[in-house]
Design a protein around this nucleic acid. Structure first.
Lengths: 208, 208, 208, 208
DNA sequence: TATGAATGAGAATTCATTCAT
DNA sequence: TATGAATGAATTCTCATTCAT
C-alpha cells in the first residue's frame, strides 16, 4: 500500500469512493445523521464491501480527518518551504495555503471543523494533537513577526485566532461556481491577514 | 402564554428544561447524534412529556435556533440603539453584542452555526432569512463606513465576513472559567474589527 | 336520557358527532387503523370530551354496531308488520328494508360487516346473537315459503345466504350520487331475490 | 428467483412463513390491528428478518393481495380454458373457480375483500385495476349469455354483482371442518347462479 | 359536568454490525 | 478477498388512557 503521485493513498478503487462518499454525507448530514448504508450506496459498493475495507463508520471518519490533516500540513509545509524568513511572507504563505485548502476542499473542511467530537477518545486526542501542531505554525509566524516588530498588533493570540477563523470560514460560503476566483480570494485574505496583524515591513515592500 | 421579564417565553418548567437539555446535547453530539431519549433524560422528564410539549426532535431544534435568533437580534438592536451614527461606533456595538452573545451562549452558538442543515426545508428557509437579515446589519454598517470614508478597507465584503467569522469563532474556544474576562475579550475584538476595516476616524477619536 | 322522534338517542350534541365521526373513521381506516384522536378531531370535540361521553374506543364501536342493529331490526319489523303472511310478500319486505338500509347507511354497514372482530368477547357475543336473530327472520320467511311450496329452490339455506350477501354488498358499491335511485335498486333486488328462491305464487300475483 | 411447481414464488423459507403469518393476522385483526411483532412472532422469525425480507407492513399486505389476485386469475383462466363457448358452461366454470378459491383461501379472501383500503395510493390503484379486470370476466360471460338469449335476467349488471357477492361471501361462513364438502358447495352455487341469471339453455341441457 | 396536562406501553422502522460462505 | 443474509439494540414517534382540577 503506497502513495501515488498525487499524494493519494493508492488502494483499490472502492476505498476512495467510500471515503469520498463518506466525506460528502458527513458534510451534508453530520456524522450522526449519516447511515453507513447511505455511504455505501453513494459510493456504489455493498455494505459488506464497506466493512471489508474499513472497520466501521468511525474509522471512515477518522481516516477522512487524518487524511485531511496530512494534506493540510503538507500544503503548509510546502508553502513555507518556498519562502524566506520574513514573517509577512511566511504569514502570506500560510494564509494562501489555508484559503486554497478551504476553498478547494469545502466538505472535507466542514467535517474537520465540526465532527472531531464524533471520534472516540483516542482518535480525538490524536486529531487534536495534529490540529494544535498546525495551529502552532501560525502562532510561530505571528509571534516571530511580533518579536521582530513587523507585526504590531497588540493582541497576537487573538489576531492569530482571527486569521484562522476567517480563513476557515471560507469553506462555508465560497462557491467555486461563482465569479470570485480562488486566486482573487487568496489575494484578499492575504491582505486582510496582514492588516489584522498590523504588518509594517522594515524595508519598502509592497503588500497585497 | 406571555413573556416574563427576561424576555423568556413563560411556559411550564418542562419546556425550558427540555430546550436547555436539547441545546446541550445538540452542541455536544450534533443533531443526528442526539437521541430524544438523551434529551428527555437530561431534562428529567419522560419521553411522552417531551412529545407533549414539542412536536418532536426537529421542532426542538427549530425552537432553539429561532429563539437564539430572537436573542441575538434583540442584543444587536439594543446595542445599536445606544449609539450615534458613527460607523466606527456602530461596528463596535455590533462586535460587542456578537462577542458577548457567542461567549455567553456557547453551545447555543455552536448549534446555530452547524445544525441549520438539520432543519426541514421550510424551517431552514425561515432560519436562513433571519440569518441573512442579521448579516445585513453588519453589511450596512461596513458599507456606510466605507461610503463615508472612515473605513478604508479595499475589501468591504470580505472584511465583513472576517469580522463575523472571528466573532463567531469565540464560541468555539472561549472558556468562561479561564482568566480572560468577557470584557477584555470584547475590547480586543472591537480593536481587531476596527483594524480589519481600517477605521480612520475623521476627528480625533481614540480607538480601542 | 330518552329517545327522540327519529328513534335517535337524545344526548348532548357531542355524542352524536362522536358516533358519526367514529363510524366514518372506522369505515375508512378500520377499527385498528383509527386513533381516537382522529375521531375526536373529526367530531370537533376534545379528547377529554370523548372520554367523558364514552368509555373508550371500543365502547364507541359497540355503540355504533348496537345502534345499527337496533335500526336494522326496527326497519325489518316495521316492514314485516305492513305485510300479510305471503312469504313472497314478506321476503320482498325484508329485501327492501335491507337494501334501503345498506344503501342509506353505507359506512355503518361496512363497519358492521367487518369490525365485529374488534369487539371484546362479551360484546361480540351479544352482537352475534343479535345478528343471528336478524338472519333468522330471513330464514323463517324462506323456510316458510319452501314449506308452503311457493319457494321452489332446492337449496333454501344457500339461497337465504345468497340473498343476504347480495343485499349486504350494496353498501360496497352503491353511490347515491349516481344515476340509480334507491327505489330502482330495491325493485331490482326484490326481483333477483324472488328469482333466487324460485318464487312461484299460488294465485296470479304480479311480481316486481 | 424462479417459481416452483405450485406456482409459488420460490424464496427462502422465511418469506412464505411471513406471508402466511401476515395473512392470518390481517384476517383475524385487520391490517391496522395487527402489529408486525405479531406477524414476526407467528412466523417464528425475528423482527429484523421481517424487514430483511420485506420492506414493511404495507409491502406484506400488498404482496398478499397481489399474490391472491394472481392465483384467482389463474384459477379462472384455467377454468374457462376448459370450457366451450356456451355462456352457461362458462358461468359455471367461473362460479366453481370462485367458490373453490373462497372456500379454500378463506383468510386470504377476507383480507382481499376489506383491506385494499390499507394499501397506499399507488398500490391500491394497481390492485383495483386487477380487481376490475377479474370482475370483467364475469361481466363478459353474463353479457354474452344475455346477448345470446340464454340468460334471461332483466338485470344483468345486478345479477352479476349478486353472483359475485354470494360467491365471495362463502369465505365468511364456510368451514371446511363442517359436513358440507366443497364439491357440494360448488354444485349448489352453480345452481343458484344459473337461477339468478335465469339460464334457459337452447338445447336440452340439464342444469345443476 | 368538563378539560388540558401528562404518561407508560407499544408502534413501525432503521441502525451499525457480524456471520457464514 | 469479497458478499448476501441476518440480527439485537436503538431509533423516533403514537397510542389509548388517566389524572388533577
Amino acid at each position: 500500500m503506497g502513495t501515488d503521485v498525487d499524494g493519494e493513498t493508492a488502494r483499490p478503487p472502492g476505498h476512495r469512493a467510500l471515503l469520498e462518499a463518506a466525506r460528502q454525507e458527513f458534510a451534508e448530514h453530520g456524522y450522526g445523521g449519516t447511515s453507513i448504508r447511505d455511504i455505501a450506496q453513494r459510493a456504489g459498493v455493498s455494505l459488506s464491501a464497506l466493512y471489508h475495507y474499513y472497520g466501521g463508520k468511525q474509522e471512515l471518519l477518522y481516516t477522512i480527518l487524518d487524511e485531511g490533516m496530512d494534506r493540510f500540513r503538507r500544503a503548509c509545509d510546502t508553502a513555507l518551504a518556498a519562502t524566506g524568513d520574513d514573517p509577512g511572507e511566511r504569514l502570506e504563505a500560510l494564509v494562501e495555503a489555508t484559503v486554497r485548502f478551504r476553498a478547494g476542499q469545502r466538505d472535507r473542511s466542514s467535517v474537520e471543523l465540526t465532527e472531531d467530537r464524533s471520534l472516540n477518545e483516542e482518535q480525538r486526542a490524536a486529531f487534536r494533537r495534529r490540529q494544535a501542531a498546525a495551529s502552532r505554525m501560525f502562532q510561530q509566524v505571528v509571534d516571530d513577526g511580533c518579536a521582530r516588530g513587523v507585526f504590531r498588533t497588540p493582541h497576537p493570540a487573538d489576531a492569530r485566532r482571527a486569521v484562522l477563523a476567517m480563513c476557515n470560514a471560507v469553506s462555508q460560503w465560497y462557491r467555486p461556481e461563482g465569479e470570485l476566483t480562488v486566486d482573487d480570494l487568496v489575494e484578499r485574505y492575504v491582505s486582510l491577514a496582514l492588516t489584522l496583524v498590523e504588518y509594517r515591513p522594515r524595508r519598502a515592500r509592497h503588500v497585497g
